[in-house]
Design a protein around this nucleic acid. Sequence first.
DNA 1: GTTCAAGGCCAG
DNA 2: CTGGCCTTGAAC
Length: 453
Amino acid sequence: MEFGCEVDLEELCPVCGDKVSGYHYGLLTCESCKGFFKRTVQNNKIYACVDKQQCRIDKAQRKRCPFCRFQKCLHVGMRIEAVRADRMRGGRNKFGPTYKRDRALKQQQREAFIRAHRFRTESGTPVASWIQNGDFTFTESLNTVTIQKLSTPSLQSFGPTGAIQNLCSSASSWTIKSMYSNTYAGSAVVDAVTLMEPCDPCSKLRFTQDPRMPPLVMEFLLYDPDELQLQRNTDVHFQQELTGCCSYRSTFKQLYAMVDLLLHAIVEWARMSALFKQLQISDQMKLLHHCWSELLALDIISGHILYDRQACLLLIGDHEVEPPSTEYPPGPSLFDLSQRGQALLEKLHILKVDHQELASIKYLILFNPAVKELEDSGFIEKVKLQVGGALLEYTRTACPQLPNRLAHLLEFLSELRPLSCLAEEYLYCRHLRGEVPCNSLLDEMLHAKHNSP
DNA sequence: GTTCAAGGCCAG
DNA sequence: CTGGCCTTGAAC
């Protein structure tokens, strides 16, 4: 079973994502943030940020900027008044009952999340047999792919073909970088890089003023990709081509360019996540290779919900640009995808899902402990459970009148999976016909899942 | 007596 | 300065 009651529920520090050692100064934090907070308050430290006071704080970088670290300590709720002025040791402070309540609440949430997860409808998930085969070969191919721990700058060929897919490194992080030919979506990489720039967290602060919002959900929202930038990029790509009234083939070329752009944004979003960064590179690759299509489908659908995105992939099914398939058995059509996507979109509309929930759901998709041959599935499971707990806490606070809201969200997730399988099948069929440009990130994702070495 | 969140210590 | 480990002592 995916979530057993016996699971050791190790929490993660809301400041840096390190392992929690207990309640310190008002909430569960790690030992190092506890010490840092204590020293800062006791010694009346005053720090300065050499950047824009928006430094990302995670386990690897928490030492870099004490100013932003302390700001984050305060932001997540560490209490200055819990540091004793008289420095008296031992005993308990006035937060004792708070900690006790918090423990009870967390336990309740944990149990409720596990119940909700059991409730989730797993049946009726049609997965084409070739996809299952693909999963097998995908696992096999992973064994042959050596991924360096990129402590020094390096370029490495990735994937079973000669595609120019490279893992690049900067410091201890990584990116998947696809190169484009001059004739195909030449500006996509540049655009993707632009949209990957961390958005201004202040622009989202208005959503995070509510002190009842779980710190984890707040974090997810703050670091969700900048939609405006993404929209500008995708609109340019998509509408240029559609207004040009061109052949279906070139329209799909643009479609792939946009899918590739979205994939770049998804990879970069994951890469920027403090929790994701704590995984080994190999696990990061496995998780992304496994869930890219789900994240892509969710991204496209949520674009409608949150932003009424103009460049609408779902509507492409209405353009009647796709000639009927001559293959037997016929693969899925864009029309199929469009119909199913619209049905899911309708569900989200009825649920009135919000940005916080969508930002959290993405982490539930990404941190999937069921992915095969993970090095650290334990950590991934803990993260998933923690995200589930935070999402439950959030839905209970935001929609107290709907106690089963989380179960509905999980049900939506279980319905997203077959759609993403269908989308993958569609893209793979076109890939086999040579319509997916080589060297794109999409090409890499399709290769990773379906090619045996 | 046990628990556990305070403060303290000190190698790196 | 950092952070892992140690000591303390009120609440239970």
